[in-house]
Design a protein around this nucleic acid. Structure first.
Length: 306
DNA sequence: TACATTTGACCGGA
DNA sequence: TCCGGTCAAATGTA
């Protein structure tokens, strides 16, 4: 109970801080150096309010105030450590039998991106994989590795796109509250989208390419974890933290791995609600235009970072 | 030995 | 009742 109160308090304080930053940013908008974007701050504020409301709704439903006396205390809800409510449909099962609550995830407060990799600089732990209806590939479920030691509630779902572009549809839920931005680990993440025995792993070169492509998302998420690195090249070197060749420039990496004629990197990142409200649904599903050689990486970065 | 992944079962919203 | 999301025991790996 105290833990949830503390969590709610931290969430609200975080939201307030983000609002202050936004206020400062708007006041000195002309002098904004681009280190923090309005969108980033709005995302943080929205995330704080969403998390806070979720915690509050948990309180109102009695989950916070009435901790069950059953030995089930160790079993938790998916996102927060609020004990599951006994619905009374079945007799209270034993610790062994009973599971936590499985509330269907809301699409609000989710961020969607499409990328050729699932790497994003954070450490994720896979906790499930599921075949989804009308999909040839399973959906993989990840939670932040620091869920327990830092209480980080960030989750992500990864699903390979149906087309043959070898791209992944990645949906993020919640925000990282773990203090450190994880580096690009040398251990490639392996996804099994084929038969259960045949693993699909990323080659070295591809993982390097993906490092390029995820930088913008890392910038966005790094704001969540108090990273204040400002420009893109900064992110490349600081984000690698010694695990990748330092000092590599965007152009060099793009040139090395994609060739001089290839300038486009298929990547998009935006709030799910925005995609529904203001743009057509195929904004991220239809990625065909990204194969166009004239689609420049500068355009991508400007779009994402603006 | 500790940590990560796999996978079948369970839960609950739609 | 279906199906997406999660749990947790079994298994794999460093």
């Amino acid at each position: 109970m105290e833990k949830n109160k503390k969590s709610l308090n931290e969430t609200l304080v975080s939201g307030r801080d983000s609002a202050k930053k936004l206020q400062d940013l708007l006041r000195r908008r002309v002098f904004n150096d681009g280190s923090v974007s309005v969108d980033d701050l709005v995302m943080e504020i929205l995330g704080s309010f969403s998390d806070g409301l979720l915690l509050l709704s948990s309180c109102e439903s009695g989950e916070l105030s009435s901790v069950p006396a059953s030995p089930h205390v160790g079993l938790t809800c998916a996102d927060d450590k609020i004990p599951a409510v006994n619905t009374g449909k079945k007799p209270a099962p034993t610790v062994k039998e009973r599971r936590g609550c499985y509330k269907r995830r809301r699409t609000i407060d989710s961020r969607v991106k499409t990328s050729v990799t699932i790497e994003d600089g954070y450490a994720w732990r896979k906790y499930g994989q599921k075949m989804i209806l009308n999909s040839n590939f399973p959906r993989c479920y990840f939670r932040c590795t620091h869920k327990h030691d830092h209480g980080c509630k960030a989750l992500k779902q990864v699903q390979k796109l149906e087309d043959e572009s070898n791209m992944y549809h990645i949906t993020y839920f919640g925000h990282h509250t773990c203090p450190t931005l994880n580096t690009f680990s040398s251990s490639g993440v392996v996804l099994d989208f084929n038969a259960s025995k045949s693993h699909h792993s990323f080659s070295n070169s591809l993982s390097t390419i993906t490092n390029i492509q995820v930088q913008s998302s890392i910038k966005q998420e790094a704001d969540d974890s108090m990273t204040q690195s400002t420009d893109v090249s900064d992110n490349v070197s600081s984000g690698n933290d010694g695990h990748s060749p330092p000092g590599l420039e965007w152009n060099e990496m793009l040139h090395d791995h994609l060739g001089p004629g290839h300038q486009g990197a298929p990547f998009m990142w935006f709030d799910h609600e925005d995609s529904c409200a203001s743009t057509s649904p195929h904004d991220y599903l239809d990625m065909g235009f990204l194969n166009n050689d004239e689609f420049s990486s500068e355009f991508l970065f400007d779009e994402v970072l603006s």
